[in-house]
Amino acid sequence: MRLVIDPTRCHGHGTCAQLLDEYIRLDKWHYPIVAKQKVSVSHADLLRRAAQLCPELAISIVDE
């Protein structure tokens, strides 16, 4: 699985970084930087939750 954020949708709410601190950190403007794209299977549920909780629905999970 791969984590992708649509930068045109993201408004920098930062919810994803709180839930997925292992994968996402925020830049100085509070926009997410995806530090790790590949998501381990054990984190799949957490990732789906983060995707649902994103206020802009900017997170996509790509199955590979």
Binding site: P7, T8, W29
Partner: peptide, 11 residues
Amino acid sequence: SAGQCGPCVHG
């Protein structure tokens, strides 16, 4: 800038 992406808008 189209004003859509944070890093472009601020950077």
